[in-house]
Design a binder for these strands. Sequence first.
DNA 1: ATGAAAGCGCTAACAT
DNA 2: ATGTTAGCGCTTTCAT
Lengths: 349, 349
Amino acid sequence: MSRSRRRPAASGTSVTLKDVANRAGISVATASHAINGTRKVKDETRDDVFAAIKELGYSGHSIARSLRRGRTAMLGLVVSDIENPFFAMLASHVQRAAAARGYQLIFANSEERADREREIVEAMSAQRVDGIVLAPVAEQNVEFLSMRRMPLTLVNRRFPNVVSPYVVVDDFAGASLAFDHLWNLGHRTIAIIHGDEHQSTTISRVAGIRESYQRRAHVFDETLSINAGRSGDAGETGLVALLARIPRPTAILALSNWSLLAAIRGMHRSLLRCPDDVSLVGYGVTSPYWVPAAAITMVEQPVTDIANNAVQILLDQVEKNVTVEPVVLRPLLTVGQSSGPPAIYRAEP
Amino acid sequence: MSRSRRRPAASGTSVTLKDVANRAGISVATASHAINGTRKVKDETRDDVFAAIKELGYSGHSIARSLRRGRTAMLGLVVSDIENPFFAMLASHVQRAAAARGYQLIFANSEERADREREIVEAMSAQRVDGIVLAPVAEQNVEFLSMRRMPLTLVNRRFPNVVSPYVVVDDFAGASLAFDHLWNLGHRTIAIIHGDEHQSTTISRVAGIRESYQRRAHVFDETLSINAGRSGDAGETGLVALLARIPRPTAILALSNWSLLAAIRGMHRSLLRCPDDVSLVGYGVTSPYWVPAAAITMVEQPVTDIANNAVQILLDQVEKNVTVEPVVLRPLLTVGQSSGPPAIYRAEP
DNA sequence: ATGAAAGCGCTAACAT
DNA sequence: ATGTTAGCGCTTTCAT
């Protein structure tokens, strides 16, 4: 006898597994097993189940499944600035990699703010995502997640004092690659524009430049180095001043996406063209809406590899409960049309 | 007596509401009500509950809550190209608006492909999101969601034959705005670059141009119109050809983000500068990594308003079950440094 | 090869 | 003001 005195879920006309089982004339257990392939089911029964599914338009209830299984099949992705083409591309590829392995992606933008990041990781934690890919802002939020045993993979930046799997690019090597390219072309007066000096990426890249000079028994002229930060026009303004010097730097090495933008604008304002007036090498990603491939000589961050590796080692933790090793990827120098020998080697004196 | 013969959820050491209730020496009902404020609880008891929560590090289980309540507090966002700065900004603002109202955001990128879009909406549907903000690709997928009674708000594009709430910008008015600006400066030979001709946005914008000519008893010279599509360099190449014409167009009107990029590249290749050689007006969004505000005269899509309205009318459907009216926003012309009177009005003949 | 039924952790109707 | 408990829809153990 049916009492039905409770009608909590606003389930509407939602069709459940029980409905499917009834329609197929079997038990919910068998229906479940038929769907998931978790145990042998007679072919005929299985066909009945799928027929019923189709007829009723059943589509499963992943919330109920998650509650029972203790897994949500959802991953979190936290980026620090979705308008930065690097993170836009990262989001795109992480989402694709996650989907390919049966996971949905919850996405959020911390806007480089530690408090936003805290809210986000707490919300994702409460939402019981199975793991998080995090482009971290504040060390303390990483610790919060570690404390709660949340499977975690850091990308882009990492913190020396925090043990957590990460996927980064060898920025020291990348900067050296760019420097060697310019040096071998004959450049000796190279302007450097870099991002926020507190970030591990900037530190490694600048260290790479410094070491490249040392290796050649040269001194790194600090006055040729500009901090473009991550917003504002300090980089652009600084570069304009630098390009007005005599003798003028023969090359510009922009060590981040934002720096590259500053460099392009500064050159434009100085009415200089590359590679004729000055060579330009960037560091970051290429994307149609941003810098088209091969237009500018670039140290390319392998964003697809970063995304794939991040998802891979995150799911290794989630599914196999395996302790994973950090991944350090090699950047690649793509020679484009923006760099060439310094003018002095060509025509005029 | 405890039997505990089942240990399904890999819950680890997860602390539940029951633990909190035990610790506070009360029932789970009271604990629940204290947390949610769903009924009167004695102040002292309430304090005990929150003390217990803090001590045990309890953080709720939104999966269980979702199952019981029939709501997930999650919204879906499907964009067609996350690398396009318009959608990157949209994602950022939709996520923020959703978070402000207590909703998490599931995000996905359809890459302009109907089949990807289908997978995505099916997955989100199975995930029981409470509603979806969709930048649609295929009409049929919109119908699929309508059929399943999924609360839905379309953005950017809409389909004439589908009834579904939407938030769009008045593209007809926006194009007229841009045209009037150029016309009033004295331009009469205006090159048009637009996006994919099958999209409703392109159709409205081009119609706006056409009508603007008619209103002035002029004929729209179709040979001045270029289709830049949404990728490739057709726009750039077409523009270079157009700018080689004699007499040269005195202005370029780029009717989409992608068209604007094509225009900038085409001008660059033609060694022309704006506004001195030719005026340029764009249509889309401004963003530091893309086109900085005020650098280029632009019809700006009010992306923050789009996002806020989309979330607003989506949640009106979800929470109030209200039938909502579509929203048509007015675009805004921002005059920047890229447009001025045609050269003929200034110095040379 | 299949079923019966116990919960996953929570909310809320029905108690007191 | 608080407690008891059914049940959201599913997976999975135990039993047949």
